[in-house]
Write a protein that binds this DNA or RNA. Sequence first.
DNA 1: TAACGCCGTTAGATCGATCTAAAATCCAGT
DNA 2: ACTGGATTTTAGATCGATCTAACGGCGTTA
Lengths: 294, 294
Amino acid sequence: MRELGYVYNMGAARLRAERSHTIGVVVPNLTNPFFAELLSGMEASVDAAGLVMIIANTGDGPPRQAIVLQRLREHGVDGIILCPAAGTTDEIASQIEGWKLPLVQVLRHVTDELDYAGADYVAGMEEAVEYLVSLGHRAISFAAHGPVHSAYQERVQGFLGAMKRFGLRPEPVIRFPDRVDQIAQEADALFVKDRAPTAVICFNDLVAHGLAAGFYDRGLKIGRDISLIGFDDVADAEAMRPRLTSVSTAPNEIGQKAAALLLDRIAQPALPPRRWINPTRLHIRDSCRPLSSS
Amino acid sequence: MRELGYVYNMGAARLRAERSHTIGVVVPNLTNPFFAELLSGMEASVDAAGLVMIIANTGDGPPRQAIVLQRLREHGVDGIILCPAAGTTDEIASQIEGWKLPLVQVLRHVTDELDYAGADYVAGMEEAVEYLVSLGHRAISFAAHGPVHSAYQERVQGFLGAMKRFGLRPEPVIRFPDRVDQIAQEADALFVKDRAPTAVICFNDLVAHGLAAGFYDRGLKIGRDISLIGFDDVADAEAMRPRLTSVSTAPNEIGQKAAALLLDRIAQPALPPRRWINPTRLHIRDSCRPLSSS
DNA sequence: TAACGCCGTTAGATCGATCTAAAATCCAGT
DNA sequence: ACTGGATTTTAGATCGATCTAACGGCGTTA
């Protein structure tokens, strides 16, 4: 075989065995370092099982998502890991059902009828609020950005729920642009009207990074003048000064777990839908300080 | 066709037509935001041509790279975009030649016999040195990390060459760990012995980010006490304070171009090897200041 | 009228791994 | 040596799109 330079023809095997040793991974965005971590985790699990990943980008739009899913179907993938584009409706569940294609949702979910792997956004946000309250903060704002989807809503819900439980006035959620430099420019939005938050919880580390820059530009010192909490705990959190306290969602682990769920489902298509919620952990660093009594 | 739920079977088409509408992308690392940008650019070009990408991770190790390439070959990819793992020898050229598999190197190159798309690392580093010299700096250090490969050596070469041309003593290249928090801890390495650099050029923005944190911890103010230049100009550069001056390598564009080169080669396998060197641009922000005359 | 060219249609071979069923081989046990 | 059962080997069908060659219809020309 070696002499003749034989290589196994997976294409022929796929045709006959109706198994392609290929899975599709559909994400809304490649550049976000969070998704990069996620992919990396998936790659580890998928590779270990001897399969390869086809990746596709939806740009967070349902029309492109439909095209991409069709394309993957034509390529005969054995299964799909999907982070549903914002605006995906739950009718996708019946569609997938009809296709008889193993699929797991990751990070976001639109239906209970399909597997799902994600993080406990609600608990993560609650923990962030609890921590700030324990430091004496009462005026806490929430800084969000990006499209609205289940992971977005769960974060907001976790924040508002915890605020309510502590009897604090739930501030409206303040929305910021997507680019980090624009977030910095618009940091003032936190202080308009009668709002004077002493702490800010961010939708993710990217927003935190932008706000940190904006605070710096305005002479506000993080810790002394305002406390800041990020979400996701990606590599940058450790490199910021002061170091960013952030809620860790372990995207790498979620990726691994999503891949594991998909492999299980491929092996046993009749399994009831499962969901795996990764616990979050508040990684306390230096961006929050006790509120000095005034 | 719609009524019967027909889907085109790419597997069968591939078998007969010996064309899979699939390309392989082999990178040493998924998590690096630089590679994420690169992938995103490729995806745009590849998708527009109606093909899909299989991605694979070598962990920057030649043994795994060999396995991964074999796997892609079995899957019958129409071509491969490869960022060669550190330590890849040029004998890979003859191997690829024998496989009759279109392949382009990206970011790093190990042979002239295959296409290559990358950035002009040499010119980028020269420009960085020139800029610092124009500000009056003479004691300039180079902070590196990671495995050694062509892109590494070209950066060092650009730095040392420019230093020599200006008649400046070429400082030894100082190596740092890979993790950003460890870089911060070891920032002192820049100042050991008789070295007292007034400016530091970094291998990439990640090192710059780590050093910026390390300087902060030591009470050194970037701009006033020391000037800092990054390399790659990824999103973070804009979010750092002071904003990081960085040499832009436009990974997204390189990704697009690499994909375009591959598509060309698939269409015309007999084409002579081509190389496309993306020009770099020094993105001046606020991390460098003129050296005050002492 | 036969021969020829042009075009659209159709039947059947093809790609290579896999699966099945039939055929060939093996191994006791009498 | 022969038989029954088990095991291995082999031949051929199969997956579905694609490619080729043969075929049929039609118009033109000798």
